[in-house]
Design a protein around this nucleic acid. Structure first.
Lengths: 332, 332
DNA sequence: CTGTTAGCGCCTTCAT
DNA sequence: ATGAAGGCGCTAACAG
């Protein structure tokens, strides 16, 4: 039912009906009630397309995530969805499956769909074409998980987090510590985390073992297992995400190593599932839900004020450490 | 840039521009090229709202899922997203977090957003108010995972799947087999799977052990552990989903039982993560990706033909069994 | 094959 | 405080 119908039913003009809904304070109390009742009677449902066409605001937010198969992003999306709903926004999530080309594709599609703003996590803010496109379009956006000092970001301090993790491991007596990472070229997070690892090792006065970089997650188990078979292998593995850590534990098992007795494994992300594993996964936790929520709040706030989003508004959320059971003292 | 601008630039009428895009065959080749070039020149981008307002078709599909924290639905959503994109549809996913009220809420929001159709998984098709609402609105929909003979559904045969799983376990020598389930009242899948379990046990001439129904997943581990401490405990646990199975393995561990030596654990869903666990999770697999894809294809097909979707078009996709490592011979 | 025209439903000046 | 009217960008008759 259209606004016209409501107007006729209430005996007022369409303008009044529109006001009654969008600027109630400008309409006399009684008129307002009459309109409301008429609307209910005819089961009026505002037409979003017409409103958008007229106002050029869709009240839709685009969301670009690497994948939903990694619970990190599923958790984040949950936070995004909640905050968006709370702010009266709908969301259109898109997934890149870590394909760079799909980043741009997603942004293009979102732009075509007429979203008011975008929350996204890109491979690398410094080089992202998608990001540049967004800026060229003047579309407002917030980066989640990424970090860059010329873009608005919501993330944790991956460097500090890894450095701290190293300190924890050394406190447990570990000296041969290695990092397992996804492709660093494909993720600024991985780069930062690795840098934190190196920094932590330097602080501890230890020589970092060679990085195990896993190009395709599918092959992670074999690749990690291979490094565990070498003499002088690590006694502790720091993994750049929880999914890798889970595979690392499997690799250890295949090598006949017991976790954490023979090998400690620490992940990164703090996915809920980690707590249900056996052994429970030790991990550096991120507030995934909050990262999503705060990103949206930042975006919506700027949208409401018609204000551009400044990089200075970037948020650095606190990370944590979940001890779990996969991390223990270094073997004697 | 609007269609008007393109028309002027190309020296044709707006109607011709519209046709050039939407019914190219009705426009002379050269005119078409002229329009295309003009469009490129002014960077024309069709306005979705205007089109929707005019045609009353949004080319957007609503999606209602219980949660994305369970990889089953994340995998399914991936299939949905792919198929939707392939068909030129955008999607708006909503999550109920297993709250019945949110089912209706999601459908209401989707309807307000003007979606052309909905793919959804409900708690129970027979009683779902959301479903009734959808029908009342004449909105086209397809149920995923659910089964009901008066609704179009895409799912696997949960009864047969469980019955077969029981057979496999008995073949391995198990006789004391128990099922672990989520709240059956909250899910027709759980009900069906349980029924399949009973049926399988009956066929094997075995007495089913009491069902362990876990109302809140958080408490699953303790609850399952409690049953494992009882005398005459099961030697094999059939879990109504993989997340529960993972917790069951943890419960076993806490009870000092080794999987699969002392206890076999089998899940349901076939989430990819299960293969990376240690022991690798034995599970009844569903083609989650395909369930999503086929649901959308069914929906889009009906939308294209302006045809209602008949319950007779329901699809029963094949399930499978992944042996994994968590399932072995019954202890002596 | 192409042009003209009338809205789709809504918001928003501009009057009153 | 309310009404009248224009137009957002597009498609679908209807003419030609």
């Amino acid at each position: 039912m259209s606004i016209q119908r409501v107007a006729r039913e209430a005996g007022v003009s369409v303008a009044t009906v529109s006001r009654a809904f969008n600027q109630p304070e400008t309409v006399r109390e009684e008129t307002r009630r009459r309109v409301a009742s008429a609307a209910r009677r005819v089961d009026y449902r505002p037409n979003a397309s017409a409103r958008t066409l007229r106002t050029r605001k869709s009240r839709v937010l685009g969301v670009v995530l690497p994948t939903l198969l990694n619970p990190v992003f599923a958790e984040c999306l949950q936070g995004i969805a909640e905050a968006a709903a709370a702010g009266g926004y709908a969301i259109v999530p898109m997934t890149t499956e870590y394909r760079l080309a799909d980043e741009l594709h997603a942004v293009t599609a979102l732009r075509a769909a007429g979203v008011d703003g975008v929350v996204l996590v890109v491979s690398n803010p410094a080089t992202s074409i998608a990001l540049r496109q967004l800026q060229a379009d003047g579309l407002r956006y917030v980066l989640a998980y990424n970090r860059h000092d010329r873009h608005p970001c919501v993330a944790v301090d991956g460097i500090a987090a890894l450095a701290e993790a190293v300190a924890r491991l050394t406190a447990l007596g570990h000296r041969r510590i290695a990092m397992v990472s996804g492709r660093r070229a494909a993720s600024d997070r991985a780069q930062l985390r690795y840098r934190g690892f190196l920094q932590g090792m330097a602080t501890a006065g230890l020589k970092p073992l060679p990085l195990t970089e896993v190009p395709f997650v599918e092959a992670a188990v074999e690749q990690i297992a291979a490094t565990l078979k070498k003499p002088g292998r690590a006694t502790a593995l720091l993994c750049s995400n929880d999914l890798l850590a889970i595979r690392a534990m499997r690799a250890a098992h295949l090598c006949g190593l017991s976790v954490p007795r023979d090998l400690s494994v620490v992940g990164f992300d703090g996915i809920a599932l980690g707590e249900d594993l056996t052994p429970a996964l030790a991990t550096i936790t991120q507030p995934n839900h909050d990262i999503g929520r705060r990103s949206v709040e930042l975006l919506i706030g700027a949208l409401a004020d018609r204000r551009p989003i400044d990089a200075a508004q970037s948020l650095l959320l606190p990370h944590g450490f979940r001890l779990g059971e996969s991390c223990g003292a270094a073997p004697a």
